[in-house]
Nucleic acid binder design. Structure first.
Lengths: 344, 344
DNA sequence: AGAATTTACTGAAACGATTCAACGGTTCGT
DNA sequence: ACGAACCGTTGAATCGTTTCAGTAAATTCT
């Protein structure tokens, strides 16, 4: 019942308690080399005894150039496990370096994203990991950069915008997946899900087309239906696709979530993925492994990508004049059950 | 190539540009009713024209009682989709109310958690949603409360600690699941995974025992092996369990992640879950629906729970003297394929 | 030994907002 | 017509920290 919402202990009180000046205390706290060990000890002892906690807001007020030290993370949609995997990688890395993060989820809305960015600017983040919502204008990013805040774009590249970027090799991933299906003997291969608003979609489509070309197969637009990235939409796609007079025998899916939705829809129609129809996804989400049949996929190494994104941001933060980096991570074709065997 | 890391525009400049005093500008910004519409317009026009961004750090410096306005979220382990679901619910709610969040992931380590809490205190969060790591001492929470920061505990209740709490009815959930299995004719029912460090584990076990009692079945400690919450550990559990002279015919799993790991292990041994062995999980993660057989589970409505946790924190923040709340959400038995049919 | 440097520390001015007491001017009540 | 109440506005103090310029004592240099 004690209403002891104690007033915050300030550094001034710490200084008094330690018998030094405010300035000395501040310097001791920041490990300024001109403060001798003994004095530091006194200050830290006082901090301990009084239960002092540092006020980052006040601190970053004076040193106006640096931000609060926190880094912002904006992702579009936690519902897609790929983002969760990415976030896990990011958080693990941040834990290592003991950094704090502001998290925002846009749920694919640009307005929400704008609001989020404004908020983060108000909180004076020191850096931003941005997984841009579809339709994001490059102006939005330029605005952040104008405040001197480093930005790392994840999986979404803006032409003509000087900005660090990390992504995966969508073209090669799409190429490898499609090529594998072609090598298995498939000739009607669909590329399903995702949409042309997505930067990654274009790359994966390009790889798909490249492989088709190599095998001298004509591109059939009917086999590349677009969709949002959820299971329900994927189900509709399958519905539509298997009503065609000449349905596909293999499916390369924009991502794993869609692949799983598609496989569920196939199964409910009595079509066995991995046997009647080959399926390959993209991303590598954990669910792909537990699904029957287990999902063959082009892995983007999402956790590693998250970790690398943090590393990139950190090097940018510690060295603002470093040349712009564009990291394209190699993809890897992960063959499991859903891609099936060679056609007889 | 413009090195135009422009200096931050301050409210003072805005005031000058609008032809009013700093005080007036501040009040206009905060919607103080004593500022007439016309003046507000002038100020907002100036804000627009100068590209002013509010500095929350500076603002929260003066009004020392309130924090920065951001709320902290600490979860243990994003790898378990349950937490992701919870986080989705939290983020959706926060988006509605346009609040910013600091996210920390402890990966089940108390030291990391301590560090995270300290950080969040330094950033002066206005409230904390805490999914406490196993082994967390109640002292840690008391410390936060001493700073006058509202805390909402999720799924982990500390006896004798006056603190808001939201969780699910573990006992009833465990009871219903077990009872259902008993009603199907099962008599060897295992309760697998989780461990006694977890508050929720005890509740679920209690419900399990209660149901067994009701059917006059002796509790067999061999049927309640503990484990960490991941698929590999679940697999080991199955390995061990099905080496017993008298293996179980039904499994009630501490959570869905373990249930899925267990079912994968069963399948790889040629045992068909939903037919040879009944399985029921707890939580309701999306993966449970795509798995074959689809996972019967006790849903904790994770997204709703996340949303409600935010609501609870918000009411506490707006009304600090409100009596302590303990919200226990009802569970619901979600019957799908894995629980099977009545034994012949 | 006297000057120059170093060492250990400090006072005071920032940083960008909030907030309180106070201002002159209009309107109201009686 | 006089004081009270109100309105729109403002100057100045304040929050907790950093940082610059400066000081007095101790050490080094020549």
């Amino acid at each position: 019942m004690k209403k002891s919402t104690q007033k915050r202990v300030t550094l001034k009180q710490v200084a008094a308690h330690a018998g030094v000046s405010l300035t000395t205390a501040s310097m001791a706290l920041n490990g300024n080399p001109s403060i001798p060990e003994a004095t530091c000890q006194k200050v830290f002892k006082a901090i301990e005894e009084l239960g002092y906690v540092y006020d980052r807001g006040a601190a970053s007020l004076r040193s106006s150039t640096a931000g609060s030290g926190a880094i912002g993370i904006i992702v579009t949609d936690l519902v897609n496990p790929f983002y969760t995997e990415l976030l896990i990688g990011i958080q693990q890395k941040l834990n290592e370096t003991e950094q704090t993060s502001l998290l925002g989820t846009t749920f694919d809305s640009c307005e929400v994203q704008d609001r989020m960015i404004s908020m983060m600017l108000e909180y004076r983040i020191s850096g931003l990991l941005l997984f841009a919502a579809p339709g994001t204008s490059s102006e939005v990013i330029k605005r952040i950069q104008r405040f001197g805040i480093p930005v790392v774009l994840i999986n979404r590249l803006f032409p003509d915008l000087p900005c660090d970027y990390i992504g995966v090799d969508n073209v090669h991933g799409g190429y490898e997946a499609t090529r594998h299906l072609l090598a298995l003997g498939h000739r009607r291969i669909a590329f399903i899900g995702g949409n042309r608003q997505l930067y990654t979609w274009h790359g994966r489509l390009q790889g798909y087309q490249q492989a088709l070309n190599e095998f001298g197969i004509d591109f059939d637009p009917e086999l590349t239906p677009e969709s949002l990235c959820n299971r329900e939409e994927a189900s509709n796609l399958i519905e539509h696709l298997f009503k065609l007079p000449n349905p596909p025998t293999a499916i390369f899916s924009y991502n794993d979530t869609i692949a799983i939705g598609a496989m569920m829809a196939l199964k409910s129609r009595g079509i066995v993925p991995g046997k009647d129809v080959a399926v390959i996804g993209f991303d590598e989400i954990p669910e792909g492994l537990s699904f029957s049949p287990s999902l063959s996929t082009v892995t983007a190494h999402p956790r590693l990508q998250g970790a690398k994104a943090v590393e990139l941001l950190q090097s940018r933060m510690s060295n603002p004049s470093m040349p712009i980096q564009s990291i394209v991570m190699p993809t890897e074709l992960l063959l499991r059950e859903s891609s099936g065997e060679h056609l007889k």
